[in-house]
């Protein structure tokens, strides 16, 4: 379970600035994420975490700074462009069609078809899609009772894992998870954390946004703390503790005071 900080980072952010009118939501943020690394992104409400990841996933466009993804400067005009590049953002319930089954969701927008009526027309290959879905879901050590059922009939954690399985299936180069354990029961929270570990084993880097510090400490390799739009700490998990993290979160500690320009 190497957390290899020496390889080239998969994602590098340099001096990212995002303003909304007169308000600077993200101020000069640098961040590197390497293969197989789980980075916990924490901070109070309004600290700029969500704005930052939306800059990465193409929802927002930073005014200043650079995003370097897989060694190349990246610009994502739309969320779909970030996805096409391999950056998957997993929002709770936002990305699944609850009225479709597991296979349909995993292949949503990229349905596999077969020739029908003697090649006249292409029809959905549901059997193939369900089989593939089953394979990828089970590879994450998740067990779903029924693959034909609508996603609506699954529990919150099961749906979360389908979303993750979809990202895995489509060979995500990097995953951003926004509060993946919110509203989940305890056993399901454990399961999601387990999946994150599985992803690390597969060397898929993960940015994990969470309010639940114990979760972050449990799975993350590094922890990045934001306060009022700035990165105030970037520490290896082994080198810190939750008490210290809270100090950073409330602004009592600051590792990068030089970015606090007027």
């Amino acid at each position: 379970m190497a957390t290899n900080g020496h390889t080239d980072p998969v994602l590098s952010l340099r001096n990212i600035v995002k303003r909304f009118g007169g308000l600077t939501a993200v101020k000069d943020v640098d961040l590197d994420v390497s293969g197989g690394e789980v980075v916990g992104l924490v901070g109070d409400n309004g600290a700029g975490k969500s704005t930052l990841i939306k800059c990465i996933s193409g929802v927002y466009h930073p005014e200043e700074g650079q995003i370097i993804f897989q060694g190349k400067a990246a610009h994502f005009p739309r969320p779909i462009d970030a996805r096409d590049a391999g950056i998957e953002t997993i929002y709770q319930d936002l990305a699944l069609a609850g009225n479709l089954n597991v296979g349909a969701n995993i292949f949503l927008g990229r349905e596999v078809r077969k020739s029908s009526l003697g090649g006249l027309i292409k029809t959905l290959n549901n059997k193939y899609m369900t089989n593939e879905a089953k394979k990828v879901v089970e590879s994450l050590d998740i067990h779903l009772p029924n693959y034909e059922q609508q996603i609506n009939n699954l529990s919150g954690g099961q749906r979360q894992s389908v979303a993750i399985a979809r990202a895995v299936y489509w060979d995500a180069k990097m995953m951003i998870m926004d509060e993946p354990t919110n509203n989940l029961g305890v056993p399901e929270q454990r399961k999601v954390l387990e999946i994150i570990r599985t992803l690390r084993e597969r060397r898929v880097p993960v940015i994990l946004i969470s309010h639940t510090l114990p979760d972050v400490f449990e799975v993350a390799d590094r922890i990045v703390i934001m306060h009022r739009g700035r990165k105030v700490a970037d520490k290896r998990v082994a080198e810190t503790n939750s008490q210290e993290v809270v100090q950073y979160m409330v602004g009592a500690l600051d590792d990068f005071p030089e970015t606090r320009s007027a």
Binding site: R83, A97, A104, L108, G109
Partner: peptide
């Protein structure tokens, strides 16, 4: 069609 009716936002994100 079903996906858009179920979750238009998700369909958009999925590239439909």
């Amino acid at each position: 069609t079903l996906a858009i009716g179920g979750n238009a936002e998700a369909s958009l994100r999925a590239g439909i």
